[in-house]
Design a protein around this nucleic acid. Structure first.
Lengths: 335, 335
DNA sequence: GAGCCAATCGCAAACGTTTGCAGTAACATT
DNA sequence: AATGTTACTGCAAACGTTTGCGATTGGCTC
């Protein structure tokens, strides 16, 4: 079990550790001759730079932290993939934690990230996070952070999200165009912005088209499959059944989908169904689901790019931006 | 930008850094009185232990590295989720890299992991990895590693996988029971074991039932959607069209699914289709897909548990095991 | 009161790397 | 021959934490 260090290389060549360090980093002060010699020995000894020691010395690692509600969720795994690709090209590695939609766990995740001295942090909030003051520590320590998708109004710092209001507005307008009159909404929790904005888009579309808003047609839940099944069960049990359901996201829509199918109702003849986020799965069910494309991979990439800029230029030299991506309405047979 | 260190706490209380360190770790040498005082100040100063410095000193971090082909793939994101949950409970964080099915990138991922001094490593091979000698470095440095799902015969070290041969065997037997005679197979690359074993299960099932193996009905590709579309296009263009297709995994089956639908063929009347891995999506398409459940989340958890054991007991004190999980045949309407 | 033990704490070294500064040698310039 | 310049390399300190060992105190026993 021998691990070569910079000192080993130095000893081998009768040099000092500092020279070896500089040689490996192609410092201009070092002659080409020694550089090649150093690199040769480094290769021969299987030398790996010790990122931990480097991070310790430099007071910063080359790791980007990511906190998401759940990794399995396609939107997030896809966003993470985008982040990883960009980070990889910039010489960073990623460290991932999932809050499992739990506020306390999110706080502990944050602690772990700070402890690990990540160079920067990408966060999508858990659905149970009401208070975001635990992120204050990042400002204090000047750790760059970019929030994506699930944001909160009290948050300072950059954000990347889609135009949830407009996306929902377009979708609901489309439903109205199709002739649906009693459009229900399975909404997300109100603490998270994306849920509120999508609901708002839903309401505004109805109002602008002269339809009245029936509060009994709005049921509230979380962002998971089970929230969709529960929501749909409630809605279908209503005395006057809605003729369309707009769900806050695709997982919820899929939950609703199963309930509708189970009850023997036909989509879209008996009831129309629409989601939000364009999971790959939504294109493959029968009928395929009308939804709003959210470009998860791109959101991840954009958030990572913003973060890398902050890391490079210093958190104080970049003013926070809120990047709002356009959504794309994907009309399929479910409406 | 003030970051409290152990020394700050020590100064505040007129103690030494070592005492503070021990106090924070509940070392028995330290009196309860000082322990509470230390912890109080630590809380007041927002002290976070510096994991980097700790890892540096202890020569080991509390990070578990993960290398997978692609994060978006449901099987992997789900396995990662299982790993993260277990790691979280054990006080570890995870560092994730994706090879994007590329051998060179896999090697660089490995370098990054070693550089970051991960406590252990979980790996699923890229489909283009023929040679696994780059993992020798792990043995040399005594870094525990567990391979999962995508393994290779030259690998030493523990592994967690499913009984691919048996799973495929059962599935193909089921197809034969259903009366299908010309069963095609869209196979994976032959360097990775899971592909070979599934193909082997396919062949053995045919032989055992007295059917002949038609090599023209076996097309070879990778593990992605596109491999399914290409494979299906080839098979459907055959003079004598197969009456069933068994795909090496669900993403490939979904690729094939699209081609079959596009060509106006009905599943399972014109042609039956089956996959492997039980993606959630496979239950929702029309008709739902017969497949083999692989328990991705559990595989991740089991692999992580094996790794944690190695980390705890030392890599030399644990003999490598190969954990083979039972699969479960999921029969749905596509066959 | 000498000796001993237990309880509690500090000293100092070490982990591998980076970096400002200083130092050396060789060579060119007056 | 003295000085300046250039090109290269070494010294030493520092990052925050852990840990073996030794030091100190107070109380206890005989």
């Amino acid at each position: 079990m021998f691990r070569a260090t910079i000192t080993d290389i130095a000893r081998e060549l009768g040099l000092s550790a500092s020279t070896v360090s500089r040689a490996l980093h192609d410092h201009p002060d070092i002659s080409e001759a020694t550089k090649t010699k150093v690199k040769e020995i480094a290769a021969r000894l299987d030398y790996f730079p010790d990122s931990i020691a480097q991070g310790f010395k430099k007071q910063r690692t080359s790791t980007i932290g990511i906190i998401v509600p759940e990794i399995q969720h396609h939107f997030f795994s896809s966003a993470i993939s985008g982040i990883e690709d960009l980070a990889y090209n910039a010489g960073f590695t990623i460290m991932v934690c999932q809050s499992n939609e739990d506020y306390e766990r999110e706080k502990l995740n944050l602690r772990a990230m700070v402890s690990n001295r990540v160079a920067g942090l990408l966060v999508s909030l858990s659905q149970s996070t009401m208070d975001v003051s635990h992120f204050d520590i990042l400002k204090k320590r000047k750790i760059p952070v970019v929030f994506f998708d699930r944001t909160h109004e009290d948050l300072t710092g950059s954000q990347v999200k889609v135009d949830d209001h407009n996306g929902a507005y377009q979708l609901v307008s489309h439903l109205i165009d199709r002739g649906y009159k009693h459009i229900a909404h399975i909404a997300g929790p109100s603490n998270i912005l994306i849920g509120r904005e999508r609901e708002c888009g839903y309401r505004d579309a109805l109002i602008d088209r002269g339809l009245t808003i029936d509060e009994s047609l709005i049921v509230r839940g979380g962002y998971r499959n089970s929230d969709g099944t529960h929501g749909a069960e409630k809605l279908l049990a209503l005395p006057k059944r809605p003729d369309a359901i707009f769900c806050v996201n695709d997982p919820v829509a899929l939950g609703a989908y199963l309930v509708i199918k189970q009850q023997g109702l036909r989509i879209p003849n008996d009831i129309a169904l629409a989601g939000f986020s364009n999971n790959p799965i939504s294109a493959l069910i029968e009928p395929p689901l009308t939804t709003v494309d959210q470009m998860s991979y791109d959101i991840g990439k954009s958030a990572a790019a913003l973060l890398l800029e902050q890391i490079e230029k210093g958190v104080d030299n970049v003013s926070p931006v809120i990047l709002v991506k356009k959504t794309k309405l994907i009309i399929r047979k479910s409406t």
